[in-house]
Amino acid sequence: MIQLKRVYEAPSETDGYRVLVDRVWPRGEKKVEAKLNEWLRDIGPSKELRQWFNHEDEKYPEFKKKYEEELKSGPQAEAFEKLKAIVKDHKTVTLLYGAKNEVHNQAVVLKELLES
């Protein structure tokens, strides 16, 4: 089972294996409090894509397409393969992200790809 959760929400017993999927450490969050099992920094969208998207809802379809392309090559592809292995090895995996927008962010894209 793959779950999504903002990194700012309190960890819970039902989270299972907790993976941060942001390239940049979430502002104001202490590493100890995040209770991560893994930080896959390289899986996050490139700086250019992240800045262009800026979590604007109307840009999400294009962001999703471009991000899926990024996940097919370079360090992002390697990190995505690692994430697939994590999902395979754990009953429950929670993808953590810092974005305020809970519907349009990279964790949503990753979850959809992992479940398809």
Rank of each mutant, 00 (worst) to 15 (best):
L40K: 02
L40F: 05
R41P: 03
R41D: 04
R41A: 06
D42M: 00
D42N: 07
I43F: 09
I43T: 04
I43G: 05
G44V: 02
G44L: 03
P45G: 06
S46A: 06
S46P: 03
S46R: 05
K47E: 09
K47F: 02
E48Y: 01
E48W: 01
E48A: 12
L49W: 10
L49K: 14
L49S: 13
R50S: 09
R50D: 03
Q51N: 14
Q51E: 15
Q51K: 15
W52N: 12
W52Q: 12
N54H: 05
N54P: 00
N54D: 13
H55V: 13
H55C: 11
E56I: 06
E56F: 00
E56M: 02
E56N: 00
D57Q: 05
D57W: 02
D57G: 00
D57T: 05
D57R: 08
D57V: 03
E58H: 11
K59Y: 02
K59S: 04
K59V: 03
K59Q: 05
Y60N: 13
P61C: 08
P61F: 11
P61Y: 09
P61A: 12
E62R: 07
F63K: 13
F63N: 13
F63D: 13
F63T: 12
K64V: 02
K65Q: 15
K65M: 13
K66H: 14
K66N: 13
Y67I: 07
Y67P: 13
E68F: 14
E68Q: 14
E68A: 15
E69G: 10
E69P: 15
E69C: 13
E69I: 12
E69M: 14
E70Q: 14
L71W: 08
K72C: 04
K72W: 01
K72H: 02
K72Y: 01
G74E: 00
G74M: 01
G74Y: 01
P75S: 10
P75N: 09
P75F: 01
Q76K: 15
Q76D: 04
Q76Y: 06
Q76G: 14
E78H: 01
E78T: 08
E78F: 00
A79R: 04
A79M: 08
F80L: 05
F80Q: 00
E81C: 04
K82F: 08
K82I: 12
L83G: 03
L83I: 07
K84P: 04
K84T: 07
K84R: 15
A85H: 10
A85D: 15
I86V: 15
D89E: 15
D89P: 06
D89T: 14
H90I: 15
H90C: 15
K91S: 15
T92A: 10
T94G: 03
L95R: 08
L96D: 03
Y97K: 07
Y97I: 10
Y97D: 10
Y97C: 10
G98L: 02
G98V: 04
G98Y: 00
A99W: 00
A99T: 05
A99C: 10
A99F: 00
K100V: 10
N101G: 06
E102K: 14
E102W: 09
V103P: 00
V103I: 12
H104Q: 09
H104R: 09
H104G: 04
N105I: 01
N105R: 03
Q106N: 12
Q106S: 09
A107H: 02
V108E: 03
V108A: 03
V108D: 03
K111V: 07
K111H: 06
E112N: 13
E112A: 08
L114R: 06
L114F: 05
L114M: 13
L114H: 05
L114D: 08
